[in-house]
């Protein structure tokens, strides 16, 4: 923790708020899939351009294929298909976000990567219940920026669910 010097007022409440904010500030990487989505930067290893993707037969439809990431064979998920959004062709801005969750490295194919944003902890609000169906519990919440909304994804849940679905 950084060094704290008492403010001239000597009152705790004058600086406690500042500290809290500092500690809990989150960095999000936001990307576009029609809407803006965000995931914590701590779960992201790197962002790469879309190169040669090898299709894997007999795999779920949202599995885009595998890529060669510096000698590693990395599975790539088509996030649009996974989130059951309308399919869209690959474009110039398409990117693969390489995520690392639970010691598994998985690529996520997205339309484009927007920004890295720093947000205060109270930025995220629980998504309104009407949009949260059983199938959408991988949405942590919705954050409000000045001009738009950012949907926060829980990658751990999103990627864990895959396995269960296959077993069914």
């Amino acid at each position: 923790m950084s060094k704290i010097s008492l403010p001239p007022s000597g009152l705790a409440e004058d600086f406690l708020g500042e500290i809290r904010e500092e500690q809990a500030e989150i960095q999000l990487v936001t990307f576009a899939l029609g809407e803006q989505y965000g995931v914590p930067i701590s779960q992201i290893q790197e962002i790469i351009r879309v190169g040669n993707i090898t299709m894997v037969p007999n795999s779920p439809s949202y599995m885009e294929g595998v890529i060669n990431l510096r000698g590693r064979v990395l599975p790539v998920l088509n996030l649009r298909k996974r989130l059951r959004l309308q399919a869209k062709d690959l474009g110039k801005m398409s990117r693969i976000i390489v995520t690392e969750v639970n010691n598994k490295t998985i690529g996520l194919l997205v339309d484009s990567v927007s920004h890295v944003i720093k947000v205060p902890p109270d930025f995220v609000e629980a998504a309104p219940e009407e949009v949260l169906e059983i199938d959408t519990d991988y949405i942590t919440g919705v954050g409000k920026l000045k001009d738009r909304l950012v949907i926060l994804l829980d990658l751990e849940k999103l990627l864990r669910r895959e396995k269960i679905e296959i077993k069914e």
């Binding site: 090898t54 894997v56 037969p57 007999n58 795999s59 779920p60 599995m63 595998v66 064979v73 990395l74 599975p75 998920l77 598994k104 998985i106 990627l159 895959e162 396995k163 296959i166 077993k167």
Partner: peptide, 15 residues
């Protein structure tokens, strides 16, 4: 080996 997070792909032994 192929990652089996998305289930084992039938007919594929590895890459």
């Amino acid at each position: 080996p192929l990652d089996d997070t998305f289930g084992k792909s039938y007919g594929i032994a590895g890459a």
